[in-house]
Write a protein that binds this DNA or RNA. Structure first.
Lengths: 215, 215, 215, 215
DNA sequence: GATGAATGAGGATTCATTCAT
DNA sequence: CATGAATGAATCCTCATTCAT
């Protein structure tokens, strides 16, 4: 019924199945079963449509990350909060490759048409992480580092890991979850007071879900 | 004269100036001044051309990284070798955005036509790093970790940092070099025996060169 | 409030600013702020709308020409009346390029859908001129010519001059007003009893106004 | 065989039969029987195609006018040369309405994309007339007037007459040829030494040809 | 080796118009 | 009186690719 919603969903599906390059108005229309011109009733043009998708993606990511930040955490594990937030970021990427693609992987040239400012919202996604970090430092649970700098460092690591997995560039013999967990743990070392705390990673529920879906 | 060479160079130039989306045979041909069909004499099709570029890129990257691994290092700094190699990877990405784009940033769906195996060569690029790592561990200069796992972790970090910078998604107020150095130092923490060794980052020559070129 | 009026006015404005090719229902509607379908409540279709504009234009032109014919004239100048009327025609064209375009310049094929008869009203616009001419001949102030034939000759001249100016095809080094006056004087030679009466053209108020508006 | 020639000819035919607004690449292609994209092998884009047509038209017009200027003339008729040249202009317009349309009648807004300079060639078409005029004045056969100014005046008249006829806006009860001849004679009055020379117009061969073709 | 001619599929977008409300 | 939803046809144009030369 809600054609606008249908358009956005069809776009995401095409993104998932065929990639950004295949996201044409015609294809969207034929997938929905409406005329290509109907899309113009809801979006000014193709870019505006992608734009809306990007906005949706950033909202979704922020909500997930923020809710992870709001969830209860292990009081005996100083890194637990950071870990949960970081995992949520990764899980978002793996569970919503179509959003992640247009939000973070889109060819820099392709996205030149989109207002740079929009992409700054990427940084906002890491704010809950920054808050958690500052709180930990203030409470003396975490090593004192420059919060802003460290947030970017963590973001880069998470992004790198997510991108590599999504692009299926990881050696098939490597267990994805172990890889991502090792990446995260290594990254968080920078604020860990006691490196000895880093035990073997256990099964990560968020990733299990992704695996199940993909299988 | 060597038309094949000209084609590849023109392709790279288009990639640099206009991005992957603009890489069309027609454009390549008109830039060189030959006919579009002439390209088919040297490449089976458009994909094969990109393929060759990717191959070249991987060769180039490997050479740089390998030569960094072969260069003399500070005997008093256990991380010096790893650092040099890692920096070389980053520098390659920043200096050759056109190669890096098709090698690592290309939309996963777009490149579905390329043999996945080819992309495994990405891993090979990190072999010199792995060698250095194993040597360090064997010599007791580095903390004992699973070399293969750690290499992937480092790769993810480097890739994330490089990708963020290339996509110009880093907050403009953040100094790029400091960001990348912090990222690298934080990543190498995992194998550092003595965390106290991490001093303030100094100017990084490789990045200076990139800056100069971009300016 | 009067939507019909608003539609017509918006159409004229689009005609002025963007030309006939840009006169689309969608554009009209968006300029007014109503729906495109609303236009169909007042006009059968796009053609009918243009039709109405043409009608308006012919009415406007006739009124101006007729009022020029009714204005007092120099009793010592036998051509004064003809001159005033002719100038009014030219001034109408230059001041209302949007009307003039659809009335007289519209591609003959484009307007095939409009009843040819409508365009015959163009001739009616010259009737005051014809009357003046007949009166002058009857009074012996003007050379005896076939009125109907001469009216068409004058019309052709005026139209040619107006069209050339509106299409901006006149060499920029040529003064527009002098050009038009020379054209008019030359045309009126045919009914002038004494060619010596043709003095230097003085400033023409009607054109001054147009100039002011365009500047 | 010569597709470029075919494209131009088909374009002219569409122009004649359906007008400028109907001149689309698809229509051209389907008329010829080739693909629409084939047109791009010979013309950069639609504008360039029209451009070529305009160039052809101006060349054709100039050739005709120039050859009229070169033809022998009645030594006893001071206006004979001017008359022949002017008629040739009119005849060109009536015989080649498709050329005349894009050269002189094209909507001013539509042709904004074409270099203004091109349209200056319109003036060049009147040069043979200007030469003849100057020669006549120099020889004392014609009344001394400002040649440049008078040329424009004549051009405006010819253009007006031609445009009115082509647009079929002339009252059907008026004989087209008589109308055009009257227009021309009246226009040439400005340089005639002896107004008494203007006899009844005789049949004009050029127009007969047009009539025959149209019938 | 290299080219020119040609194509079919597909790209985004605009338009006038209809219909149910 | 007015609208919103929707469409089909049309617009120009770009692309990778083929084929005969």
């Amino acid at each position: 019924m809600d054609l606008r919603r249908q358009i956005l969903d069809a776009s995401r599906q095409i993104l998932i199945e065929q990639g950004y390059g295949a996201l044409s108005l015609r294809r969207i229309a034929s997938m929905i079963g409406c005329s290509a011109t109907a899309i113009y009733l809801y979006f000014d043009n193709r870019d505006a449509l992608v734009h809306s998708l990007i906005d949706e993606g950033f909202d979704l990511l922020y909500d997930r990350v923020a809710s992870a930040a709001a969830s209860p955490r292990d009081p005996h594990d100083a890194l637990d909060g950071l870990r949960r937030i970081a995992w949520e970021y990764i899980a978002f990427g793996l569970e919503n490759p179509e959003y992640y693609e247009i939000m973070f992987l889109l060819n820099p040239r392709e996205m030149a048409r989109f207002p740079t400012e929009k992409y700054r919202r990427a940084a906002r996604s890491m704010e809950p992480f920054a808050d958690e970090l500052r709180a930990g430092i203030a409470a003396g649970r975490l090593r004192a580092v420059d919060p802003r700098g460290f947030v970017n460092v963590v973001w880069a690591s998470l992004h790198g890991g997510t991108a590599i997995v999504l692009a299926r560039r990881l050696d098939v013999r490597i267990d994805r979850e172990r890889f991502l967990r090792a990446l995260l743990e290594n990254t968080l070392l920078g604020v860990a007071l006691d490196p000895a705390m880093h035990a073997e990673p256990t099964a990560e529920p968020a990733l299990r879900a992704v695996d199940a879906r993909r299988a």
